[in-house]
Amino acid sequence: MRLTEFWGRLEETFGPAYARSIAADQVLAQLGGRTIDQAIAEGVETLRVWRAVCAAYPDRVPARLR
């Protein structure tokens, strides 16, 4: 998954402002206790990061974006 697609999905799911807040502040266990921003900066594959978001917010991510 391209980074632009990842951000598009995250923003579609949470809205632009809240998506950036989640990326910067929310630590996800599925990412080894890192935030989305940290995981991406450390080179974690964006598809893996997206799957972590889907696992952490199963009721929030629309089925068509999973």
Rank of each mutant, 00 (worst) to 15 (best):
L10E: 07
V27K: 14
I36N: 04
T4A: 13
A29F: 05
R34I: 04
T46H: 00
I40H: 07
A41C: 00
E42L: 13
A63C: 00
E42A: 14
L65G: 09
R48C: 11
Q38F: 08
L28K: 11
T35C: 02
W7F: 01
L31C: 02
V61P: 03
A29D: 08
L31R: 04
I36Q: 00
P58Y: 07
A56H: 08
G32L: 02
G8P: 09
F14Q: 07
V53G: 09
T46L: 10
T13R: 00
D25P: 06
L28T: 01
P62Q: 06
L10K: 07
E5T: 15
A19G: 09
A56N: 04
W7S: 12
E45Y: 06
I40P: 06
L31W: 09
G43L: 14
E45W: 01
T46I: 04
I36M: 06
L10A: 04
I22W: 05
F14Y: 11
Y18M: 07
A41E: 12
G43I: 12
A23D: 07
G8V: 10
R51M: 13
R60W: 06
R48E: 03
W7L: 01
P58F: 10
V49D: 01
A39H: 00
A55D: 01
F14G: 01
R64G: 11
F14T: 01
A55K: 07
L3F: 10
E11G: 13
L47V: 05
F6M: 12
E12I: 03
R34Y: 05
T13N: 06
R60V: 13
A17F: 08
V27Y: 07
T46A: 11
M1H: 01
D25E: 13
R60N: 10
E42M: 00
P16V: 11
Y18E: 01
